[in-house]
Every structure is written in structure tokens, then in C-alpha cells.
Nucleic acid binder design. Structure first.
Lengths: 184, 184
DNA sequence: AAAGATACTTACTTACCAGTAAGTATACAA
DNA sequence: TTGTATACTTACTGGTAAGTAAGTATCTTT
């Protein structure tokens, strides 16, 4: 990926997380980069193309991260995931799913499919992490691992959103409780 | 409130929950009501005025609901809250906080304050419900009631959002687990 | 050196959006 | 009956959005 294209995607990612997908325009990217909006259209003919690329980037980064954590015990792996969310939160960003899902109905079909893909990748990984962790006595919890994974991802996602409204302590309180509740 | 004004607010509420605040326009309200966009500006000079009214409406409805549940045992009160979220979800709507918070940074100061007010009202109520419920042995949980309230509201909020992406079973799985986990 | 691909800019179109100014119809009150 | 408030419509502005067509500079390949 060329330098310009890469910068466009990075800026778009930040804009989606801070302003929302429908609330930012190509001008918000073109001005700080000192290029014209047509230059962005050269790389991403339609805004949905840029959106899909931002999500694909996120899926790739997520897959790289979990691959790096593969040999850690499951409780450490989950702590790493929490740290990823925390890092986003301290920069004022929220997670991609949290910022995209509210505008979901306004998206094109290919972009909707891409959002769904990202959701499945993340939830599947957490489910596996919890299942393995329970089998290895590193986690204790009731019910299906998939259900617990949904609880955790919804906690992380929404606590970032709520932190913007009620203050940054929200995320710390929520993430600490998630990890404590899973202790055997 | 006049009939027209009331219909505008109701439609705006649905549009915020389905498309997001920045993604809907006065035309989306004017066309189905068969009025002109200037008629909406007569009642709500700026879009933020409409947004604030939608939130105020929601706060009022929430206060009326919890007042109605006042004499129920706390576990039943919490079940009622889950039912409110469930009703929204089955109509394809998400909760106001979930749809407004991602666009938070694009709002005017008065509207930001109103979103914060709504967040505080809901979290305070859940905290009180959990505290009283634990004191009366209807709930069992570790840690501070406020932390637990944050976990629950983030679960409910985000599971509605995720239901749109991953299917409606997400909300049912999450809400069932919330209530089971609190059983003494 | 010519041809072609890449990465843009210039200049534009079409469409929509929030918001406004001025006019109109209706109802009720003095 | 005249006046005034309410609840709009008509007709518009200024701004911004996504997107495009045509041209240009630069580098690479033949």
C-alpha cells in the first residue's frame, strides 16, 4: 500500500472512531494531508470502499495481535485484549464496531457484510479463549463460552462509548470487574 | 405539546435509533408527515433543539417507568428494564445512548450535557436497584454496585447494537445471562 | 526515446442539507 | 371587526457533500 493510501486509511480510521462514519467527509482527510478530495477518490472511488478498507485493516491487525499472544495463558491473552481497548480509549477513540453499528442501516450491502465479518472474527476468538481457559482451569464461569464472550465484548465496546459521556473511569471499572469475575 | 410537534419528536426518535443523529435529515421527517421542512424549523429552530427534546422525552419515559416499578422486588424491576430494551430491539431500534454516543463529539454543548444527564439518570437508577436488591438478598454479586451497574448497562446497550450485526439471539443470550448471574 | 502506468490536480456537477425571510390561513380575544 | 398569536407554506440562501471528467507530472518499462 502506498504511503498516501496508508495515511488516508489511518486518518479515516481515527475519524470513524471519533466522529462516526457518516459525520466525516473527504475534506476532513484531504485538508490535513494537503491533498485534494479527488486524490482520495482516486484510491477509494466511493466512501464505502474506504470504509471497507478501514475495517479490513482492523481485522488484519486483530489477527496479527492474537497470533502474537497465541502461546500466552488464556487469562493473559484476555488481559492483552483489554489493553488494546484501553489504548483506544485513552486516545479518545472508541472501537470500530461501536462506532459503525449505529449507522449500520445506512451502509451499502458489501460494507454491512464487512462489519458482520469483523464482529464474527472478534466474538469467535473470545469464545475460543474462554473455552480453552476454562478447560485449563484459568477461568471459572457459568454457562456457554459463547454467551460469556458476548457479555465481555459488549462490556468492552460500550464502556468505551460510555467513557466519553461519563468519564474515563467507566472503562477501568468495567475492565477490572470483567477480569476479576473470571478468576477461578 | 401539539400533535404535530409530538409526531416530529416520535419520528425523530425512531430515526436517531435506526440511522443515527447525523445521518437523518429534516426531509426524513417532513416527507412522511406531508409537511415542509420549515414547519419542523418552526417547532425546533436548530437540529440540536430537536435532539435535546428527543432525549428529554426519553428521560421522562424512563422516570415514569421506574416509578411504576417502585413497589416490585428489585429482581423484577431489573427484569422490567431488560424488557424495555428487548422491546426496542425487536423493532430494530437501539437504545438512545448507543446511537448518540458515537456522534458525541459532533454535538453542541447543550446537547452533550443532555446526553450526559440521560446517562447519569439510568446508571444511578440501576446502581440503586442493585444495592437495595443485594441488601434484601434478592441479588448476589461481588464488588461495588456502581461497577456492576456499569457492566449491566454496557451489556444491554451493546447487545442491542450487536444484535443488528450478528442477529437477534445476541440480545436474548446476553440478557438471560445477566439475570442468571445475579441470582443469590 | 516513446509508451504506458501511476498518482495525482484542476475544475466541475449534482444533490442535499440546515436554516431563514416573508407571506398566508385559521382561530380566538378585545 | 380589528388585532394578535399560532401554525404553518413558499421560496430561497449559503454551504457542503460525494463523485467525475479531463488534464498533468513523474516514474518505469520496452
Amino acid at each position: 500500500m502506498s504511503d498516501t493510501k496508508d495515511k488516508i486509511v489511518t486518518l479515516a480510521d481515527h475519524l470513524v472512531r471519533t466522529k462516526g462514519f457518516n459525520a466525516f467527509s473527504y475534506k476532513d482527510i484531504a485538508d490535513p494531508m494537503e491533498i485534494k478530495n479527488a486524490a482520495i477518490h482516486y484510491h477509494f472511488p466511493a466512501k464505502a470502499d474506504l470504509g471497507i478498507c478501514v475495517i479490513d485493516n482492523e481485522i488484519d491487525k486483530f489477527r496479527e495481535s492474537v497470533e502474537k499472544w497465541r502461546k500466552l495463558p488464556e487469562d493473559k491473552q484476555l488481559t492483552k485484549l483489554v489493553e488494546v481497548f484501553h489504548r483506544h480509549g485513552t486516545n479518545g477513540f472508541i472501537c470500530l464496531m461501536g462506532s459503525l453499528a449505529p449507522d449500520f442501516e445506512t451502509f451499502t450491502d458489501p460494507m454491512k457484510a464487512k462489519v458482520q465479518e469483523m464482529g464474527n472474527v472478534i466474538v469467535s476468538w473470545i469464545t475460543g479463549c474462554l473455552e480453552n481457559g476454562r478447560a485449563g482451569k484459568r477461568f471459572h464461569f457459568e454457562g456457554e463460552a459463547y454467551d460469556r464472550a458476548l457479555l465481555i465484548i459488549t462490556n468492552l465496546q460500550s464502556s468505551l462509548i460510555l467513557s466519553r459521556v461519563l468519564g474515563p473511569s467507566v472503562f477501568n471499572r468495567v475492565s477490572n470487574r470483567i477480569l476479576k469475575d473470571l478468576k477461578p
